[in-house]
Design a protein around this nucleic acid. Structure first.
Lengths: 184, 184
DNA sequence: GTTCCCATGTAACCCGTTACATGATTTT
DNA sequence: AAAATCATGTAACGGGTTACATGGGAAC
């Protein structure tokens, strides 16, 4: 059907389905809180996708006047949009999980560093992982209280992040232990 | 000093340091086998970075004539290049680990799918993870035999991938177990 | 009265990708 | 004769980013 669009387009489409009658501004905030962990998008990009989606008539925009705040556009799926989302979800998933890690890239060349510098690299990484870990725990706790299918899906994707962070924290410990052995 | 360059530039710089006197063609192959797992780069991009690095005079190119194959350029670091690499490694690492997962994005909207479709999504993900797992095991085995600092760094980054894949396979099992509970 | 929140947008850049071109040599 | 390997490149596209602009109402 439609020329094949980037997954980001469907991410926004799915978000509008999940949070109907939201403004672009609100969607940016929701995206930042929800799928940003495994599919980050900037504000500019999200607005661009809203344009694209309305152009495709997959979503319809409604003008809402407000007196306590600027007027806004709210969005909701059309029938065609619902179909497009369903088609995309049903299509076989290309295994496109792109991962780029500045920490690992540096660690890969770590043999050019002093052991102290390596240790500090690992320490920074640990802090970042711990912060992530806490975020995921918070999300899981919050969503555990909600008994909707959407909340469950959100909780389980957060669990994926949690398990990943745990494993990587374990890796940091493993590596630090190995470095200590060498110093002796 | 130099306007701040993308990490990819330093990735190539580090690779030339690690594998001196290699051609662009060889570097593409090595990059594909080594840091592609956490820092993928395409052939075109790598060649473009070689141009940039020679322009910066961080690497120098030498023409090598061959009779059994086309002539080639080989690369090696200059003093300035070595300094640039060291500076980059020593600089505080921005926590830029960008992760985009098509599987998680779909899973996030999984409440719109039939349970069977979710199961197949998870099954595909498991296969991909298992393939990754095997790759990392192979790398670790291969590098365990080599007793250089560079090999050790490579082995430990591969271990990071291995631990991550293990944790995610565990997540798949966890989620599948939860889905079964619901069916009852 | 400055700062934060709501709300939407423009401009410019460039990184990274895919597809394709070329051509010699070696292997099947 | 065809296919794979070695080797380097061009062309075009677009997704995603950062930085900036605007402006009214609310909060401190």
């Amino acid at each position: 059907m439609a020329a094949d669009l980037p997954d980001t387009t469907y991410a926004v489409l799915g978000l509008i389905d999940k949070v109907p009658r939201a403004s672009g501004y609100e969607l940016v905030a929701v995206a930042g809180r929800s799928f940003a962990h495994f599919w980050p998008i900037s504000q500019t990009l999200l607005y661009r996708e809203l344009d694209r989606l309305t152009g495709l008539e997959w979503v319809a925009a409604t003008r809402v006047e407000q007196q306590h705040a600027p007027s806004k556009w709210t969005y909701h799926l059309t029938a065609a949009g619902g179909q497009a989302l369903a088609d995309w979800l049903a299509a076989p998933t290309p295994a496109t999980s792109s991962f780029r890690s500045g920490v690992l890239l540096r660690f890969f060349f770590a043999y050019r560093l002093h052991p102290d510098q390596v240790r500090s690299l690992l320490a920074d990484y640990r802090s970042a992982l711990q912060a992530q870990h806490e975020e995921f725990v918070a999300i899981i706790d919050k969503l555990a209280a909600v008994a909707t299918p959407a909340a469950r899906a959100g909780r389980l994707t957060a669990l994926h992040g949690l398990r990943t962070a745990e494993a990587r924290l374990g890796w940091v410990e493993e590596v630090e232990a190995q470095l200590e052995d060498d110093s002796c």
